[in-house]
């Protein structure tokens, strides 16, 4: 039962770590990694706490939600990676540019 708490807190750590990296890192691929770490942290929180009740079966509903979430995260990652490559081909950059008035 305490293990659950350990993992849930690790999930919180992953969320905050990923958020920090998402803001600080410049390379878009690293931002994708950071987003995936955030997602993993949230999943750990969501399905980890499903194991709270002592001795009982874990709650299947959050588990199913996390399965959905993992698939959605993969889909988002695939789209983001394709977009990075397109951006790289069009601009030579692998990071976000300032785009105020560029024409």
């Amino acid at each position: 039962m305490t293990s659950v708490l350990v993992f849930a807190l690790a999930g919180v750590g992953l969320i905050v770590l990923g958020f920090y990296a998402l803001l600080v890192q410049r390379h878009l691929l690293r931002k994708v990694l950071a987003f995936n770490v955030i997602s993993s942290g949230i999943f750990l929180l969501l399905a980890g706490l499903a194991r709270r009740a002592p001795g009982a079966e874990p709650d299947p509903v959050p588990q199913a939600m996390v399965l959905t979430g993992i698939v959605v995260a993969v889909a988002a990652t695939a789209l983001a990676l394709a977009m990075i490559q397109a951006l790289r081909a069009a601009t030579g950059r692998t990071w976000l540019g300032d785009d105020g008035d560029e024409e």
């Binding site: 659950v4 993992f7 499903a50 194991r51 996390v66 995260a73 993969v74």
Partner: peptide
């Protein structure tokens, strides 16, 4: 460890496997 074998399978196949392959290819 959290008794979530379904998620473990999905995590390794999708979270590590597919995502990893996509990242490496990109």
């Amino acid at each position: 460890r959290l008794d979530a074998v379904d998620i473990a399978l999905a995590e390794i196949a999708l979270g590590a496997g597919v995502t990893g392959a996509l990242l490496l290819a990109a």
